[in-house]
Amino acid sequence: MRKHLGAHLVLLGGGLIMVSPFVYQVLATFMTNDQITSVPPTLWPTEWDLGAYAAVFAQIPFLRQLLNTVVITVLTTVATLVLCALGGYAFARMRFYAKGPLFALVLTMLMVPGTLLLIPQYQTVQSFGWLDSFAGIVVPGLVNAFGIFMMRQFFLGLPRELEEAARLDGANPGQVFWHVMLPLARPGLSALAILTVMASWSSLLWPLVVVNSQDMMPLSVGLASFTGEHGTQFPSMLAASLMAMLPIVILFLVMQRRVIEGIAFSGLK
């Protein structure tokens, strides 16, 4: 501890600044709306009121919407991993017609502001008859440009010799990918998994536009409904968002070593 005293001081100080908004958020969930909106504001709950948490369960079908979020997140993550592994490998190691332009197209996806394609994408989903379904929420987001980019970098960082050896043994490219490269890609895939889980967990506008019933809403949309035309119920909103965050935080704590190793492997060229 003494050896890195300076580092600890900086990191701890910075860390406290980073989490202080959360400390306030946690405290505020135990306040009444009246206390949160008091002038001047107070920092410590006077009554330790649990009403905010009760209100969350009373107002939105929290568990049902949590389940929707889990389903959407799992479907998205599994599909993203498969597609990004395939695409990333193809872009990194295979030679094919129009590879450069196709990769540029994938990068373009990163540059498009989210709401720009809202209406044409909605019309497409509607023509498939996918409104108000998991398919409508999940499928348009399956091609994840960030993920393909990241997996491409990852495969570029792996040594070529292993593939060459497998090829000499008579394996076709599919077998090389499946037996040799995919196992090596595990750290990269776990990193991508956690990033995808996070993004899909909190996505708001697209599911909101596609879903037409209270019971199909993911939690992110249900939470947003605590903002009304004439003001927000602050404690319930904060409590609900805290409850929604919790699974992700736990997942991160469990996965963090893998995430970091995963990104390290790619070298990110």
Binding site: I119, L208, V209, V211, N212, A224, E229
Partner: peptide, 25 residues
């Protein structure tokens, strides 16, 4: 009757999207 409550902030964005493809509620 299937009722749905949308957040005020995104209400009109969604309705415009639906209007553009003739699928208003």
């Amino acid at each position: 009757v299937n009722i749905q409550a949308l957040p005020w902030e995104q209400y009109w964005t969604k309705l415009q999207t639906q209007a553009s493809s003739k699928s208003l509620p």
